[in-house]
């Protein structure tokens, strides 16, 4: 793969309005879905019931699930406890009706000879964590804008943050569409996507900054557009190679990592691809729009200045 910016016909800038439109539609749809259907919240974020089943011998998760299914209940999660894995803890989202609870107690008394303990759980911890993650990310974006404003320019920072929120919102919208159940690990996946998004965006911005310095004169939209496209083409091989390698890692987790982390690894794979998309098609183009507006305003001002001097 070698992309020569002089010969290539790749134009990332010309179709920017289509990219903006595409992302805007997708995200609007996402927001609508999030506010109507919402996310499929797992046991970490919902009130529920747990039933501890004490067996006389070692049990497996599947055995516990099967026993529940036989009385018409499907646990949302089962973990094993006890020194010999002789306790199965089944969690149900939502509060179980008295009928179901009695049924379960009777059934497990017959099977294992022990009455299971039933208790209700509240999602305070999961909710706290989600809120805490959101607040921390918001504070982090302020930090990013400040740093990028110092090292680059203010508008680079703004574009990078918009790309970051684009990616975070994208992954939430995606999970709202597929309605896969999300738990605490999902938060970690979103944080990873945000980290990747910012890293990826800064690398392309770095090339734009460098090429802007090399340009002798940058006066209008066309000049900036040329620099942006050139930079994107120059960094294309790097962008593709980097996302491929991280997708190798996340994809391996998705395929071979087992059921327990499926949501987590799927979120990673989708989010990493979205992160690359936003760096290539959204972030730099947004900056181009901001920068050319700034140039226009500067030109307008200097014109005014000249006129008033006359």
């Amino acid at each position: 793969m070698n992309f020569d910016h002089q010969e290539t016909k790749l134009d990332f800038v010309k179709h920017r309005k289509k990219f903006f439109l595409f992302s805007a539609t997708l995200l609007t749809l996402g927001i609508i879905l999030l506010s109507t259907i919402g996310l499929n919240l797992g046991i970490d974020f919902s009130s529920g019931t747990t039933i501890d089943v004490l067996a006389d011998e070692t049990v497996t998760e599947q055995e516990v699930i099967d026993e529940f299914v036989s009385i018409g209940l499907t646990p949302d999660d089962v973990i094993l406890a006890g020194d010999n894995n002789d306790v199965g803890r089944a969690s149900f989202i939502g509060v179980l009706g008295q009928q179901d609870v009695l049924e379960a107690q009777r059934h497990f008394e017959d099977v294992y000879g022990n009455t299971p303990t039933v208790s209700s759980v509240t999602p305070i911890v999961g909710e706290e964590l989600a809120r805490n993650a959101l607040i921390s990310v918001l504070i982090a974006t302020v930090g990013i804008i400040i740093y990028v404003s110092i090292r680059f320019e203010f508008w680079y920072g703004v574009a990078a943050i918009i790309a970051l929120f684009h990616d975070a919102l994208f992954i939430l919208a995606f999970f709202s569409i597929i309605q896969m159940e999300i738990n605490i690990p999902f938060i970690a996946a979103v944080l990873t996507i945000i980290g990747y998004s910012i890293n990826d965006t800064i690398v392309t911005f770095d090339r734009i900054r460098e090429n802007m310095k090399l340009e002798k004169r940058v006066k209008d939209f066309e000049d900036v557009a040329r620099v942006v496209n050139k930079s994107l083409v120059q960094t294309l091989a790097r962008s593709i190679n980097t996302v491929l390698t991280v997708v190798f890692a996340a994809g391996a987790l998705l395929i071979f990592g087992g059921e327990g982390i499926r949501t987590f690894s799927l979120a990673l794979v989708v989010g990493l691809v979205a992160g690359t998309y936003s760096s290539l098609f959204i972030a730099a183009q947004l900056w181009l729009v901001f920068k050319s507006r700034q140039l226009k305003r500067a030109k307008f001002k200097s014109k005014q200045l000249q006129e008033s001097e006359v």
Partner: peptide
């Protein structure tokens, strides 16, 4: 009481295998 892995019994083994595969792919590439 002692309590099992919340991601499932074999979570760690599977994650390690997946990790090795992922790293091998990165190296090959």
């Amino acid at each position: 009481n002692s309590v099992g892995a919340s991601l499932g019994e074999r979570a760690m083994d599977l994650a390690i295998t997946a990790g090795f595969i992922g790293i091998a792919l990165i190296f090959a590439y």
